[in-house]
Computed example of a mutant assay.
Amino acid sequence: MDLTGKQRRHLRALGHHLDPIVQLGKAGLTEGVVAAVDAALEQHELVKVRLGTECPDDQNDVADALSEQLRAEVAQILGRTVLLYRRHPKEPKIKLPPPGG
């Protein structure tokens, strides 16, 4: 599922006031971090991931890896923060604008 510009804008607006739920440290992107982000997406649908200053990984690489491994969409990369979205399969909380309109 690719997000449209309008849908990304909507998610960025919703994510603006969120605090990062998961933070990457000097170990970078580990299996534990992936599991934590997966659990957070399952519960919240929209999650901010913060890369600490000591994190060796590039934010674009982290965003790509997480979106691929967790079947999530990258709504925004701003500085060292990545905003990820994954629709809940049974009970979606976030209603996105329709793709064409």
Rank of each mutant, 00 (worst) to 15 (best):
K6G: 10
K6V: 13
K6N: 10
Q7P: 00
Q7T: 10
R8F: 08
R12S: 10
L14A: 05
G15C: 01
H16M: 03
D19H: 07
P20G: 09
I21W: 03
Q23D: 10
L24K: 02
L24Y: 12
G25F: 01
G25A: 04
A27E: 15
G28D: 06
L29G: 09
T30M: 08
E31W: 03
A35F: 13
A36W: 08
A40F: 01
L41F: 11
H44K: 01
H44R: 10
E45R: 03
L46R: 07
K48S: 07
K48V: 05
L51M: 03
G52A: 05
G52M: 07
P56F: 07
P56M: 06
D57H: 14
N60Y: 14
A63Q: 11
A63M: 12
A63S: 14
L66V: 09
S67W: 05
R71N: 09
A72Y: 09
A75H: 08
I77R: 07
L78K: 07
L78W: 04
T81N: 12
T81A: 04
L83N: 06
R86K: 10
R86D: 01
H88N: 12
P89I: 07
E91G: 00
P92E: 04
I94L: 12
L96D: 02
P97F: 04
P97S: 03
G100W: 11
G100T: 12
